[in-house]
């Protein structure tokens, strides 16, 4: 029996040494040391042995058991270490294989820039207002010093919603000026972004539906300089640098004096496509609020003394700002709802 133990020992140790992975070792361990393993079998057979062999066989089997446990243990540690090493091997690693990507989705570029503009103005204490897109002629024109037969109406290519022309698709965000005056108590500062409509043939630079941001500040002693200062602040934030600007005459019936506010083209030194080779970009129309517009907006307000008030107003297009920001060459993409376009502006 002792000889058998010895040959078993040599055989088992050799097999443990040869085991190449954890699974083989586990099978071997079971075969050798399991409940029905060889060692158990030997121990179970001890009562059948002659008395004089029992003690040595028992000792030898238990010693072998201990020896095998240790051998398997260290072999396991060895294999484990090899396994960890193997996991650290970078062979065949290619980080450029495409990952599992979350689906795409994002905000419209108009929304992105509009939020930027809103954030700049709210940080300066402006309230953000909204107004109807289907608007009364009164707000869109009459209260803004554009009476029914004013020639500038024809320049605006208005969509009318009824034959009597009392309801229009708003041609500008300016009607929100009047709505603000009706509701708020001066002094106040507001902006009103939103979509506007003009009956124009569509092409790469013309849309019948586009977006404006209106601004209105009303208070005592509001001056032209406040307007230019404010617009400069906006541009510096938007373009993240100081740009040259200029104020020149412009005609809008609801401001007097009225201005065009130009900004030096941020994309070129001596003329490019964006500025139509002029180096100036017409950024917005603006001016000091016409006294008769203040009269109309605050009419019937006993808590407001219009004679003490002045104000400035401005309006600029969001679409062009967006097109400039991203280099978009066709305005029709903005309202086209095409994912191939929308997915280009992840945000």
């Amino acid at each position: 029996m002792l000889e058998r133990l010895e040959s078993l020992r040599q055989d088992a140790l050799a097999r443990v040494a040869e085991a190449t992975d954890a699974e083989a070792l586990r099978v071997l361990e079971k075969e050798l040391l399991g409940k029905e393993g060889v060692i158990s079998e030997i121990l179970a057979a001890i009562p059948t042995l002659p008395q004089e062999e029992r003690r040595d066989t028992g000792r030898g089997a238990n010693a072998l058991k201990g020896e095998l446990l240790e051998a398997i243990g260290s072999k396991r540690a060895l294999l484990d270490e090899a396994l960890v090493e193997a996991l650290r091997d970078g062979g065949g690693f290619d980080p450029t294989l495409p990952p599992a990507t979350p689906a795409r989705g994002g905000l419209h570029p108009i929304t992105q820039v509009r939020r930027e503009v809103e954030a700049i103005f709210t940080s300066m204490g402006y309230e953000v207002l909204d107004g109807p897109e289907v608007e009364l002629d009164y707000y869109n024109f009459q209260a803004l010093n554009v009476p029914v037969d004013h020639p500038s109406r024809e320049l605006q290519d208005t969509f009318y919603c009824d034959d009597s022309h009392t309801v229009v698709m708003r041609t500008q965000t300016s009607p929100v000026q009047i709505r603000a005056m009706e509701r708020l108590k001066p002094p106040f500062r507001v902006i009103a972004p939103g979509r506007v409509f003009r009956n124009e043939e569509q092409d790469a630079t013309h849309e019948h539906t586009f977006h404006q941001v209106e601004g209105l500040v009303v208070g005592e002693d509001i001056q032209v300089g406040h307007l230019t200062w404010t617009l400069r602040r906006l541009l510096n934030e938007l373009f993240e640098r100081e740009l040259e600007v200029r104020l020149r005459p412009g005609y809008f019936p609801f401001v007097e004096p009225g201005f065009e506010f130009d900004v030096r083209c941020p994309f070129c030194e001596d003329g490019c496509r964006v500025c139509s080779q002029t180096t100036w970009i017409e950024f917005c129309g603006c001016g000091m609020v016409q006294p008769c517009v203040l009269e109309a907006g605050f009419s019937g307000r006993e808590d407001v003394d219009v004679s003490k008030l002045t104000g400035f107003a401005f309006g600029f297009g969001l679409d062009r700002l967006v097109m400039m920001r991203f280099g978009i060459d066709d305005i029709r993409n903005l309202m086209g709802g095409d994912l191939r376009f929308l997915e280009q502006f992840p945000c």
Binding site: R104, M335, G337, L339
Partner: peptide, 10 residues
């Protein structure tokens, strides 16, 4: 939800 925001005509 990874939806894309569209702006469509009124």
């Amino acid at each position: 939800a990874r939806f894309s925001e569209a702006l469509c005509y009124s």
